[in-house]
Simulated assay, not measured.
Amino acid sequence: MALTLVSILMAAIPVTYCYPTAFQDLGEISSKTSIKFLAVGDWGGVPYPPYITAVQKATAREMSKVAEQMGADFILALGDNFYYRGVDSVDSPRFKDTFENVYTAKSLQVPWYVVAGNHDHAGNVKAQIEYSQKSDRWKFPSYYYELNFRIPNTGKMLTIIMLDTIMLCGNSDDFVDEKPRGPLRAVDANRQLIWLQERLARSKADFLLVAGHYPVWSVSEHGPTECLLQRLHPLLIKYKATAYLCGHDHNLQYIEESGVGYIVSGAGNFLDPDVRHWNKVPEGSIRFFTGQASTLGGFIHAEVTKNKMIVTFFQAKGTSLYRTVLSQRDLLLGGNL
């Protein structure tokens, strides 16, 4: 009965909310044995000339260097793509001013897989989805979706589940430090949660990543997101997710808890050294934090190989700050079985 109900609910999900599962094309792969990508959040400029910030410009420059030197098959854009109120239409000049004209390096002409943040939801998220039809690299097929990649010449698989955490938890007002107060439409939140659980439960990926805008754990201004602790956190542990990637807090963090890596990469446009929630995360889980203005911004580079995922945190002024290694999932011990 439960499976029947899930099937009915899954069938009812609007096509604009989730997207059919398919393997993504990595292009020429003859000699490759890994997948490499960058992840950056909260990168969305400002709504007045010159439509970018010094941090965004510096971070874009360093992203291009790292992508050229270390390789990047794609980029994860983790929300707050356009400050402060998203875009109003698919023809908004912000797409050019804050995206196309900023990330111009050849090494960044790769797919950008996008999710929406709270500032995007203050505008027209559907317009950002529609922009996928106008740009060769902007890939935002629906509010939430799944990406599958074959790790070249290894027989292994990487899955990334892209979530709309604002649809799941509700919007927040950064200017009065509001927390998400609950979803605008409970039916949409529940559909996404059912879809997510179904995707996690059936995943046989060797590396399983989940990405959204709000953090599960964070030591900074916004702190842990209670809604995600209740609705997402248990699923990440149960189904042995490799890592959760997000933005929202304007810094770089790495927190590891219950076998899951929590990556905050929200330093693409602003910086915030705030650590007011340092004691609100599990004891001993904090491995790395920086939000200092002297870094000029930041992002992460990840490489997924046959048996491990190497994550490196970069500052925009040109050096790596921290590196960690995550193991592939062990599906023989519970979780999916």
Rank of each mutant, 00 (worst) to 15 (best):
M1K: 09
M1P: 11
L3S: 15
V6A: 13
I8R: 14
I8N: 13
L9G: 05
A12T: 13
C18L: 05
Y19E: 07
P20H: 10
T21Q: 13
L26G: 02
S31R: 04
I35A: 06
I35D: 04
F37L: 00
W43R: 10
G44R: 08
T53K: 09
A54T: 15
V66Y: 13
A67K: 08
A67R: 09
I75G: 04
I75A: 06
L78S: 06
D80A: 05
D80V: 00
F82D: 05
R85P: 00
S89H: 01
S89M: 03
R94W: 05
F99T: 03
N101A: 15
Y103V: 04
Y103A: 07
A105N: 07
V114N: 10
H119Q: 12
D120I: 05
A122P: 01
Y131V: 09
K134E: 13
K134P: 06
R137E: 06
R137Q: 08
W138T: 01
S142P: 12
Y145Q: 02
P152S: 03
P152I: 03
N153S: 08
T165V: 08
L168H: 13
F175M: 13
F175E: 14
E178T: 15
R181M: 11
D188K: 11
E198I: 00
L200M: 15
R202P: 01
R202A: 12
A205W: 06
V210N: 02
P215Y: 12
P215N: 12
V216T: 12
S218R: 02
C227N: 05
L228K: 03
P234V: 08
L235P: 00
L236H: 08
Y239R: 04
K240H: 15
A241I: 02
T242L: 10
C246L: 02
D249R: 05
N251E: 09
Y254C: 02
I255F: 03
E256K: 13
Y262I: 00
L271M: 14
V281M: 03
E283Q: 14
I286M: 10
F289I: 02
G291A: 12
T295A: 05
T295C: 02
T295Q: 09
T295E: 12
L296R: 14
G298N: 08
F299H: 04
A302Y: 01
A302W: 01
E303A: 07
E303C: 01
K306V: 01
N307P: 00
K308T: 05
F314K: 09
Q315K: 14
R329A: 10
R329W: 02
L333K: 15
L337H: 09
